[in-house]
Simulated scan of single mutants.
Amino acid sequence: MTTVFDFTVKLPDGTDKSLREYEGRPLLIVNTASKCGFTPQFNGLQELYEKYHDQGLEVLGFPCSQFNNQEFENIEETTQFCQLNYGVTFPMFAKVDVNGDNADPLFQFLKDEKKGVLSKNIKWNFTKFLVDRSGNVVERFAPTTEPKKIEPEIEKVL
């Protein structure tokens, strides 16, 4: 059976990182954007990371420019923006597509495991997927769901 931990993703510098390195830890995987109305959610994501990281939670941010081109072209600008403006210390990865023919395999898997209300496609930036310690996708949250509202679900997988 395939789990999230079977995937390899790209770091901002283009090198591969196996999600197997997070095996045994719950994950909150988010497609992010630096120039979006939901961008202030970085604050809430960082708060969750700080509050629950010692209990195992990892928040993984994947910049995406598929929704009105709301991400910087240069990944270094993205990571600097997140660190300087929101104090982001959780891992950020290379920019990905989450829908379409070039969708990152991880996001294709996440969407297959947890469809949205109307379809499996991701509708906008800051869609969040909660993954348990075994690598199973247990919940999907809409972009409008504030990170703080996810806390009860996070506590269940801790």
Rank of each mutant, 00 (worst) to 15 (best):
N99L: 00
T144S: 13
N125S: 01
P105D: 10
F126D: 08
N125I: 00
L106M: 08
S65T: 04
N69M: 12
K111H: 00
F62C: 13
E47R: 13
F72A: 10
K115S: 14
F129S: 02
T89D: 10
V98E: 08
R133S: 10
T144K: 12
P91W: 12
L106F: 05
P143Y: 05
P91G: 06
P143G: 11
L57A: 00
I75V: 15
C64N: 06
I75Y: 09
Q80K: 15
Y86P: 03
C82G: 07
N125V: 00
N121M: 14
G100K: 05
K111I: 05
F129Q: 02
F109L: 05
E77H: 12
L84V: 13
N69C: 13
G116Q: 05
D54V: 06
N125E: 04
N136P: 02
S65V: 03
C82W: 08
G116E: 12
Q70W: 09
Y49S: 11
D101E: 15
E77R: 14
Q55T: 10
Y86A: 01
L130E: 08
D54E: 15
D97T: 10
V117L: 15
L48H: 03
G116S: 04
E77G: 10
A142R: 13
P143T: 12
E58K: 10
Q70A: 03
